[in-house]
Design a protein around this nucleic acid. Structure first.
Length: 894
RNA sequence: GGGCGCGUAGCUCAGUGGGAGAGCACCACAUUGACACUGUGGGGGUCAGAAGUUCAAUCCUUCUCGCGCCCACCA
């Protein structure tokens, strides 16, 4: 089919083309697939963005690669599908909602659970889809018909089933443990959601005098306000300074409470004072020390992050605090103070009491919530936990047996390290937005875990003769439901065709910061509940940094929103290609440089103009992908086809190996510099006329198919304007290298033409021949019949051709490359002499270098035969070329 | 403390055990059958430093220095 000669605009306008073609794809339904066991599956589960999320540059790298691979495998004919969805993002969403309520003067408690949740759903309907619009604008083509939400009814059923099964298997339990408390979000957090921020603070040295009137000791601490909760001081058992105190008591200042000095070898004698205060209820290390020594664990900071009267024993049933001793009175002035206020007050009072031995500036790390960035308070609380050991073990084994592969490989060690040191997972959260625990309590606090309330009541009646129950108000950690993602979205626990053919997924793509926050949990839960790893390969993309090498973040103000800052300027194609160009497999950071997007945008225009040139040819275009018989292909045709084939091989291998930067480089290199700059120019020679329309059309068609996964829009717009088979490039076939003829020898000869043209252009610049003037060039008479060569030189170098008799120098019967090398510029003898002289000097030094190398006996003896042979061939070439230049110079003198 | 990545042209980065590359920026020239969102030519680098392995090191090994990230109970 011939597209005729449409009037194409001079500039390519992504803003017009991209939305139009995306809409076209949606209407054609090309992103939707059903399981087809006849074809190999290629399935990627989209890491579900938060419903509060906005597109950021991380999506530009991570999500673009998913789109690229899905499009690529679809073109290969695979049963390819990219499964999208969203995460309810419990704490993040609740934070947004609470803030919105506050602006209206309302509170969560004031609204009540039911009304709050109604509002949350309404919010999700209204704003939760914003990120999808960004994804569409970026050209992402997931199977929107299969979109899932972690709180969909079906997915929630899966969550409940997993919880109930794990509980019944003894892997979920309730207990009082030290947890990470976020006083701002008013909820616990898992270890994985806690980050460490560096801060400048002080190291305070506190003097605890001995009970027996002796000297006592000095402890060093960064948190003096916790000293109310101290129950011991520990020292290293070998530490001579303190050995005499072990077993004796020291007195806490201000509150005048005696605590024992104990030996524990976790202490490093060399740090601080070598004596450590132990506050088991508010520090993870101290908690472990407390457990080892059977110490009491008084809580002195409450859920609001304020100092509270000491709670010596955790009252599980009521979660009430009961101050029981005389300490309460002495602590009274501090009770109710925020942690920071309390610290200042305590330090001042200790100083006044002579108990502050020293204060030195100190840089340390504080745990903060990865969501709210509030400083975490470790405290004791009654929560629900998942026992990790028996889940982690199979996940480690699966990796070690090779059932799971990381790209790059080294991230497997990150995965292993995370699983080896896993502590039990605190899964209960005190927010309302999320999956409420399927847990009920009797009035006597007996626990019932059931799939729904009806079942819970039935169980209660059977066991206790009454169905008087209250439900646990807590919800599950967001990552509990996302841990099921690769199978819950396929319909599990139902045995659906999707689950049968599409699980395990082929690839999971994510960034390294959530390898054990998320990836390891999917593996553990997938193995436990489906019996197989959820994906075969985990591809870890680099993190995006700004050009100064700082991590992109909203708080730093250096985050780039691709929707407002890149897509309007460069189009989705330019944004995608620009980002992917910067991705390198082994690099763990991508220092984003917008110049690549600009280059990519100009590339689209360049290709667009190559299309305009092609479709405007007088002779018109033949049908899609039809090449003339080989004997009618010119040297230039043979060269571009050979290069095309090489490019397709490179790009194919690159996609298969997650080398997106390599693929993007190869496309740009070929499309711009090989195809536009050389081949398109070469077709302007008369001798190209018979074949050029077919070859241009063939090469462009093949090229845009290879580029389609990365730049879906400009590739399709070009493809639609060329003769093509099928309705859309999205479902066109991936270029088959077997259908691209290659002619290595002729390609080599054309490369010699290119080299010669570059030399001639160089001479033109040197001799200041104006571009519009043609320069005079002589070709060996033996090339006279080679119109492909002679006309290419005439066209590309803008030369006026004469011939010279090459019978004398013996190149007449040489290879085509040799004769092409004999083409020479004509100028006045002074200019030529200068040029020949410079060329001779260059060649002489090359010959000398090569001769010296070959004269080195150990080189000839020890280097491989190939290397030595290549060096000899190189030397021969240099010598011949040197000879030719010397002859030319001599002839000039004569 | 442990682990990882990175130091190549002014900037951002490719690259290879055997003659140092791209884009951008810079300089000069140019409107040749698509393209000024263009073309052609040019200047610019002791490949962080040192030692070792090798016939040969920018590339492999070790160490040093610098930048960045992750993990860990130095209070």
């Amino acid at each position: 089919m011939n597209t005729g000669r449409p009037e194409l605009p001079k500039n390519y306008d992504p803003a017009e083309v991209e939305p139009r073609l995306y809409e076209r794809s949606l209407e054609a339904g090309v992103f939707h697939e059903n399981p087809d066991p006849a074809r190999p599956p290629f399935i990627i589960s989209m890491p579900p963005p938060n419903i509060t999320g906005r597109a950021h540059l991380g999506h530009g790298s991570t999500y673009t690669t998913m789109d690229v691979l899905t499009r690529y495998h679809r073109m290969l004919g695979d049963n390819a599908d990219w499964l999208p969805g969203q995460d309810h993002a419990a704490i993040a969403t609740e934070t947004v909602l609470v803030r919105a309520l506050a602006e209206e003067g309302q509170t969560r408690a004031g609204l009540g659970r039911e009304a709050f949740l109604a509002r949350a759903w309404q919010w999700r309907e209204q704003y939760g889809g914003a990120i999808n619009e960004s994804f569409e604008r970026l050209g992402f083509g997931p199977d929107w018909e299969r979109e899932r939400f972690t709180m969909d009814a079906k997915l929630s059923e899966a969550v409940v089933k997993v919880f109930v099964d794990l509980y019944n298997d003894g892997l979920i339990y309730r207990g009082t443990r030290l947890v990470n408390w976020d006083p701002k979000a008013q909820s616990t957090l898992s270890d994985a959601e806690v980050e460490n921020d560096e801060i400048d603070t002080s190291l305070w040295h506190l003097r605890y005098r001995a009970e027996d009137g002796g000297e006592g000791l000095v402890v060093a601490t960064t948190r003096p306000e916790t000293f109310f909760g101290d129950v011991a001081v520990v020292v290293h058992s070998d530490d001579e300074r303190y050995r005499h105190l072990i077993g004796k008591n020291v007195i806490l200042p201000l509150v005048e409470r005696p605590i024992p000095v104990l030996a524990d070898d976790v202490v490093e004698a060399g740090f601080g004072t070598g004596a450590v205060k132990v506050t088991p209820a508010h520090d993870a290390t101290d908690y472990e020390i407390g457990q080892r020594h059977g110490l009491p664990m008084p809580t002195v900071i409450d859920f609001a992050g304020r100092i509270s009267a000491p709670l010596w024993r955790y009252d599980e049933a009521a979660e009430k605090r009961a101050p029981i001793d005389a300490q309460a009175a002495r602590m009274a002035p501090y009770v109710g103070l925020e942690r920071d206020e309390a610290r200042a007050r305590v330090v001042a009072d200790l100083r006044a009491a002579g108990a502050l031995a020293r204060e030195e500036p100190y840089r340390t790390k504080v745990p903060v919530s990865s969501r709210s960035h509030a400083v975490i308070e470790p405290l004791l609380s009654l929560q629900w936990f998942v026992a990790m050991e028996s889940l982690a073990k199979p996940a480690l084994e699966a990796y070690r047996k090779g059932e799971l592969r990381f790209v790059p490989e080294r991230f497997g060690r990150t995965y292993e390290a995370g699983l080896e040191t896993l502590r039990d997972w605190n899964v209960s959260r005190q927010v309302w937005w999320g999956h409420q625990l399927p847990v009920w309590y009797t009035p006597a606090d007996d626990v019932i875990v059931a799939h729904d309330e009806e079942e819970a009541r039935r169980m209660a009646r059977e066991r206790y003769g009454s169905d008087d129950l209250r439900r646990d108000p807590d919800t599950l950690d967001t990552w509990f439901s996302s841990g099921l993602w690769p199978f819950s979205i396929l319909g599990w626990p139902e045995q659906t065709p999707e689950l049968a053919h599409w699980y395990p997924n082929q690839v999971m793509i994510t960034s390294r910061d959530i390898i054990f926050l998320w990836v390891s949990r999917m593996v553990m839960l997938g193995l436990r509940f489906v019996g197989k790893v959820p994906f075969e390969t985990v591809f870890v993309t680099p993190l995006v940094f700004d050009i100064q090498g700082r991590k992109m973040s909203k708080s730093l103000g250096n985050a780039i929103d691709p929707m407002t800052e890149l897509v309007p300027k460069y189009g989705a194609d330019g944004t995608r290609l620009g980002i992917l160009r910067q991705m390198r497999l082994e690099s763990q950071e991508l220092r984003f440089d917008e110049r690549y997007c600009d280059e990519a945008k100009r590339f689209a225009t360049k290709l667009w103009n190559a299309l305009r040139y092609t479709v405007a040819l007088d002779e018109g275009l033949p049908g899609a992908n039809v090449l003339p018989p080989h004997e009618r292909l010119t040297l230039a045709d043979r060269w571009i086809l050979t290069e095309l084939r090489r490019m397709v091989e490179t790009v194919t291998n690159a996609y298969d190996g997650f080398e997106f930067g390599v693929a993007a480089d190869a496309l740009l290199q070929f499309g711009w510099y090989t195809f536009c700059d050389w081949y398109v120019e070469a077709t302007k020679a008369p001798s190209q006329r018979d074949s050029r329309a077919a070859v241009l059309s063939f090469v462009l068609n093949t090229f845009v198919r290879a580029m389609h996964p990365i730049a879906p829009f400009v590739s399709e717009e070009i493809w639609l304007n060329l003769p093509h088979d099928g309705a859309t490039i999205v479902t066109a076939s991936w270029p088959d290298v077997a259908e691209i003829p290659a002619f290595p020898e002729d390609a080599g000869a054309f490369r010699a033409v290119i080299e010669k043209v570059e030399q001639l252009r160089n001479a033109r610049a040197e001799w200041a021949i104006a571009p519009k003037e043609s320069m005079r060039v002589e070709v060996p008479a033996s090339l006279a019949g080679e119109s492909g060569v002679v006309e290419a030189i005439a066209t590309l170098a803008r030369a006026e051709i004469a011939t010279y008799d090459d019978a004398r120098d013996g190149t007449r019967d040489g290879a085509l490359r040799e004769r092409i090398a004999g083409i020479r510029a004509v100028a006045d003898s002074a200019k030529l002499r200068e040029r020949y002289a410079r060329e001779i000097a260059r060649l002489e030094s090359e010959v000398a270098r090569s001769e010296k190398k070959l004269a080195n006996e150990s080189f000839v003896a020890r280097a491989s035969a190939d290397v030595v042979g290549a060096e000899r061939a190189k030397l021969d070439g240099y010598r011949r070329e040197l000879q030719r230049n010397q002859d030319a110079l001599a002839a000039l003198a004569a």
